[in-house]
């Protein structure tokens, strides 16, 4: 092999970078962590099925915001016919009452950053309502 020293240094850098997730999680990280968002509720169901809310809640919240703020429409009819008030503070936060223990758990886990909600709304800090 020619220039063995330089080639091996290059390959070691390549291997260290490409295996970053493996050694990071084995040393600094916590690979087995699973987020556990806390919900305090007596309500029988959410405004939409859990699977939909898990993946697409931002679409629903965005839709509600536009409906309320721009169109003045506050009525949301769920799939089962229940009518909800389109309101973050008066509907969502009744059950999802703590930002740090609900929202942030998953948002931090997959690093989706801080949503815009709290630019206008006061972030809930839990407690009975």
């Amino acid at each position: 092999m020619f220039d063995a020293g330089k080639v091996i240094i290059g390959l070691v850098i390549f291997l260290v970078l490409i295996t970053f997730p493996v050694w990071y999680n084995a040393t600094i990280g916590n690979a087995s962590y699973v987020p556990d968002p806390q919900i305090i509720t007596t309500a029988p169901a959410c405004v939409a099925p859990t699977a939909y809310m898990k993946a697409s809640h931002m679409d629903l919240l965005n839709q509600w915001r536009d409906d309320v703020v721009r169109r003045g429409n506050r009525e949301y009819v769920a799939a089962d016919g229940t009518v909800y008030n389109k309101s973050l503070t008066k509907t969502c936060m009744d059950c999802h009452s703590n930002k740090a223990e609900f929202c942030d758990r998953c948002h931090d886990y997959v690093a989706v950053g801080q949503p815009d909600c709290w630019d206008c709304h006061i972030a809930p800090e839990g407690g009975a309502r």
Partner: peptide
């Protein structure tokens, strides 16, 4: 479902 995807990814790398 990003939570599920990250669980899959973390399972693979650990």
């Amino acid at each position: 479902d990003l939570i599920g995807i990250k669980q899959l990814a973390m399972g693979l790398v650990s």
